[in-house]
Protein backbone atom coordinates (compact mmCIF):
# COMPACT_ATOMS: atom_id res chain seq x y z
CA UNK A 1 0.00 0.00 0.00
CA UNK A 2 2.61 2.55 -1.07
CA UNK A 3 0.20 4.68 -3.12
CA UNK A 4 -3.26 4.98 -1.61
CA UNK A 5 -5.97 5.42 -4.30
CA UNK A 6 -7.77 8.79 -4.00
CA UNK A 7 -11.22 7.14 -3.95
CA UNK A 8 -10.20 5.28 -0.80
CA UNK A 9 -9.38 8.61 0.90
CA UNK A 10 -12.77 9.95 -0.26
CA UNK A 11 -14.52 6.83 1.09
CA UNK A 12 -12.82 7.14 4.47
CA UNK A 13 -13.63 10.86 4.67
CA UNK A 14 -17.30 10.26 3.89
CA UNK A 15 -17.48 7.40 6.40
CA UNK A 16 -15.95 9.59 9.09
CA UNK A 17 -18.55 12.29 8.43
CA UNK A 18 -21.35 9.69 8.52
CA UNK A 19 -20.14 8.47 11.93
CA UNK A 20 -20.00 12.04 13.29
CA UNK A 21 -23.53 12.81 12.04
CA UNK A 22 -24.97 9.54 13.40
CA UNK A 23 -23.31 10.15 16.76
CA UNK A 24 -24.80 13.67 16.85
CA UNK A 25 -28.26 12.15 16.23
CA UNK A 26 -27.69 9.91 19.26
CA UNK A 27 -26.62 12.76 21.54
CA UNK A 28 -28.92 15.65 20.54
CA UNK A 29 -32.38 16.28 21.97
CA UNK A 30 -33.65 19.10 19.75
CA UNK A 31 -35.95 17.37 17.27
CA UNK A 32 -35.38 20.01 14.60
CA UNK A 33 -31.62 19.38 14.71
CA UNK A 34 -32.16 15.60 14.69
CA UNK A 35 -34.46 15.72 11.66
CA UNK A 36 -32.11 17.99 9.72
CA UNK A 37 -29.13 15.77 10.61
CA UNK A 38 -31.08 12.80 9.25
CA UNK A 39 -31.28 14.71 5.96
CA UNK A 40 -27.53 15.40 6.12
CA UNK A 41 -26.91 11.70 6.80
CA UNK A 42 -28.94 10.72 3.72
CA UNK A 43 -27.11 13.26 1.57
CA UNK A 44 -23.69 12.05 2.76
CA UNK A 45 -24.66 8.45 2.07
CA UNK A 46 -25.83 9.54 -1.40
CA UNK A 47 -22.36 11.02 -1.97
CA UNK A 48 -20.83 7.71 -0.91
CA UNK A 49 -23.18 5.84 -3.26
CA UNK A 50 -21.71 7.84 -6.17
CA UNK A 51 -18.24 6.80 -5.05
CA UNK A 52 -19.48 3.17 -4.93
CA UNK A 53 -20.72 3.39 -8.58
CA UNK A 54 -24.39 3.30 -7.58
CA UNK A 55 -25.48 6.49 -9.35
CA UNK A 56 -29.18 5.56 -9.61
CA UNK A 57 -29.33 4.76 -5.91
CA UNK A 58 -27.51 8.02 -5.17
CA UNK A 59 -30.04 10.28 -6.83
CA UNK A 60 -32.97 8.32 -5.44
CA UNK A 61 -31.49 8.58 -1.95
CA UNK A 62 -30.83 12.31 -2.42
CA UNK A 63 -34.39 12.95 -3.67
CA UNK A 64 -36.32 10.57 -1.42
CA UNK A 65 -34.09 10.08 1.64
CA UNK A 66 -32.76 13.61 1.96
CA UNK A 67 -35.76 15.38 0.37
CA UNK A 68 -39.14 13.79 0.96
CA UNK A 69 -38.25 12.05 4.27
CA UNK A 70 -36.97 15.32 5.74
CA UNK A 71 -40.10 17.20 4.63
CA UNK A 72 -42.37 14.48 6.11
CA UNK A 73 -40.46 14.48 9.40
CA UNK A 74 -40.48 18.29 9.63
CA UNK A 75 -44.25 18.23 9.07
CA UNK A 76 -44.77 15.59 11.73
CA UNK A 77 -42.48 17.51 14.10
CA UNK A 78 -44.49 20.72 13.60
CA UNK A 79 -47.70 18.82 14.45
CA UNK A 80 -46.19 17.27 17.59
CA UNK A 81 -43.21 18.45 19.66
CA UNK A 82 -39.89 20.26 19.26
CA UNK A 83 -37.80 18.72 22.03
CA UNK A 84 -37.18 15.15 23.15
CA UNK A 85 -37.21 14.62 26.93
CA UNK A 86 -34.10 13.16 28.59
CA UNK A 87 -33.96 9.37 28.83
CA UNK A 88 -33.30 7.72 32.24
CA UNK A 89 -29.80 6.27 32.61
CA UNK A 90 -31.13 2.76 33.29
CA UNK A 91 -32.82 2.58 29.90
CA UNK A 92 -29.71 3.97 28.19
CA UNK A 93 -27.47 1.31 29.76
CA UNK A 94 -29.90 -1.49 28.89
CA UNK A 95 -30.03 -0.35 25.26
CA UNK A 96 -26.25 0.02 25.16
CA UNK A 97 -25.90 -3.59 26.36
CA UNK A 98 -28.27 -4.96 23.69
CA UNK A 99 -26.62 -2.91 20.94
CA UNK A 100 -23.12 -3.96 22.03
CA UNK A 101 -24.06 -7.66 21.96
CA UNK A 102 -25.69 -7.30 18.52
CA UNK A 103 -22.70 -5.35 17.21
CA UNK A 104 -20.27 -8.00 18.52
CA UNK A 105 -22.23 -10.75 16.77
CA UNK A 106 -22.15 -8.80 13.51
CA UNK A 107 -18.43 -8.02 13.85
CA UNK A 108 -17.80 -11.72 14.36
CA UNK A 109 -19.50 -12.37 11.00
CA UNK A 110 -17.38 -9.80 9.10
CA UNK A 111 -14.70 -12.41 8.41
CA UNK A 112 -17.12 -14.34 6.19
CA UNK A 113 -17.90 -11.33 4.01
CA UNK A 114 -16.18 -10.93 0.62
CA UNK A 115 -13.35 -8.42 0.41
CA UNK A 116 -14.31 -4.84 -0.52
CA UNK A 117 -14.28 -4.49 -4.34
CA UNK A 118 -13.73 -8.20 -5.02
CA UNK A 119 -14.91 -8.89 -8.59
CA UNK A 120 -14.92 -12.67 -8.05
CA UNK A 121 -17.03 -12.82 -4.89
CA UNK A 122 -20.22 -14.87 -5.07
CA UNK A 123 -22.31 -11.69 -4.96
CA UNK A 124 -20.61 -10.12 -7.98
CA UNK A 125 -19.55 -13.04 -10.16
CA UNK A 126 -22.61 -14.74 -11.64
CA UNK A 127 -25.99 -13.03 -11.67
CA UNK A 128 -24.81 -9.42 -11.86
CA UNK A 129 -22.53 -10.03 -14.85
CA UNK A 130 -25.24 -12.13 -16.51
CA UNK A 131 -27.68 -9.23 -16.28
CA UNK A 132 -25.09 -6.87 -17.81
CA UNK A 133 -24.40 -9.28 -20.69
CA UNK A 134 -28.10 -9.98 -21.33
CA UNK A 135 -29.11 -6.30 -21.25
CA UNK A 136 -26.78 -5.54 -24.18
CA UNK A 137 -28.72 -7.88 -26.50
CA UNK A 138 -32.18 -8.35 -24.90
CA UNK A 139 -33.05 -4.80 -23.94
CA UNK A 140 -30.88 -2.42 -25.88
CA UNK A 141 -30.68 0.14 -23.11
CA UNK A 142 -27.46 1.57 -21.70
CA UNK A 143 -28.61 1.70 -18.07
CA UNK A 144 -28.58 -1.84 -16.66
CA UNK A 145 -30.28 -0.80 -13.41
CA UNK A 146 -33.26 0.62 -15.31
CA UNK A 147 -33.44 -2.51 -17.48
CA UNK A 148 -33.49 -4.85 -14.48
CA UNK A 149 -35.87 -2.65 -12.49
CA UNK A 150 -38.46 -2.09 -15.20
CA UNK A 151 -38.19 -5.28 -17.22
CA UNK A 152 -36.50 -8.26 -15.58
CA UNK A 153 -37.96 -7.47 -12.17
CA UNK A 154 -41.01 -5.56 -13.40
CA UNK A 155 -43.43 -7.38 -11.10
CA UNK A 156 -41.29 -6.42 -8.14
CA UNK A 157 -41.53 -2.77 -9.12
CA UNK A 158 -45.28 -3.14 -9.60
CA UNK A 159 -45.49 -4.52 -6.04
CA UNK A 160 -43.52 -1.50 -4.87
CA UNK A 161 -46.09 0.79 -6.49
CA UNK A 162 -48.86 -1.11 -4.67
CA UNK A 163 -46.98 -0.57 -1.38
CA UNK A 164 -46.82 3.18 -2.04
CA UNK A 165 -50.54 3.25 -2.83
CA UNK A 166 -51.34 1.36 0.38
CA UNK A 167 -49.15 3.71 2.41
CA UNK A 168 -51.01 6.70 0.96
CA UNK A 169 -54.35 5.03 1.69
CA UNK A 170 -53.23 4.28 5.25
CA UNK A 171 -52.24 7.89 5.87
CA UNK A 172 -55.58 9.13 4.52
CA UNK A 173 -57.41 6.70 6.83
CA UNK A 174 -55.27 7.69 9.84
CA UNK A 175 -55.31 11.47 9.43
CA UNK A 176 -58.37 12.07 7.24
CA UNK A 177 -58.65 14.52 4.38
CA UNK A 178 -62.07 15.89 5.34
CA UNK A 179 -60.85 18.81 7.44
CA UNK A 180 -61.44 17.04 10.75
CA UNK A 181 -57.83 15.92 11.24
CA UNK A 182 -56.81 16.47 14.83
CA UNK A 183 -60.35 17.17 16.10
CA UNK A 184 -61.37 13.61 16.93
CA UNK A 185 -60.56 12.38 20.45
CA UNK A 186 -60.44 8.73 21.47
CA UNK A 187 -62.38 7.84 24.63
CA UNK A 188 -61.24 4.40 25.73
CA UNK A 189 -63.60 3.05 28.45
CA UNK A 190 -65.45 6.35 28.30
CA UNK A 191 -62.46 8.38 29.52
CA UNK A 192 -60.96 11.29 27.65
CA UNK A 193 -57.25 10.58 27.99
CA UNK A 194 -55.89 13.82 26.56
CA UNK A 195 -58.22 16.04 28.64
CA UNK A 196 -57.31 14.27 31.87
CA UNK A 197 -53.68 15.08 31.20
CA UNK A 198 -54.53 18.68 30.32
CA UNK A 199 -56.19 19.15 33.73
CA UNK A 200 -53.14 17.91 35.58
CA UNK A 201 -50.48 20.12 33.97
Amino acid sequence: MSNVPPTLILDIGLMAMLVVVAFSVVRLRSLFAIVMLQGVYSLLSAAWFVSLDAVDVAFTEAAVGAGISTVLMLGAMLLTEREAKPVPLQKQLGSLFIVTVTGMALFYAIGDMPAFGDAHSAANAYLGTDYIAATKTDIILPNVVTAVLASYRGFDTFGETVVIFMAGLGIVLLLGLNGHAGKWRAQPKGQDVSNSRGDKS
Binding site: L52, D53, A54, V55, M113, P114, F116, G117, D118, A119, S121, A123, N124, G128, I132, T135, K136, P142, N143, V144, V145
Partner: peptide, 12 residues
Protein backbone atom coordinates in the same frame (compact mmCIF):
# COMPACT_ATOMS: atom_id res chain seq x y z
CA UNK B 1 -21.02 -5.34 -1.37
CA UNK B 2 -21.69 -4.71 -5.08
CA UNK B 3 -18.67 -2.46 -5.66
CA UNK B 4 -15.99 -3.87 -7.96
CA UNK B 5 -12.49 -2.38 -7.79
CA UNK B 6 -11.77 -0.31 -10.91
CA UNK B 7 -15.39 -0.68 -11.98
CA UNK B 8 -17.67 1.81 -13.66
CA UNK B 9 -21.30 2.57 -12.83
CA UNK B 10 -23.45 -0.12 -14.55
CA UNK B 11 -24.29 2.08 -17.53
CA UNK B 12 -23.05 0.36 -20.67
Amino acid sequence: LGKVTGGQPPII
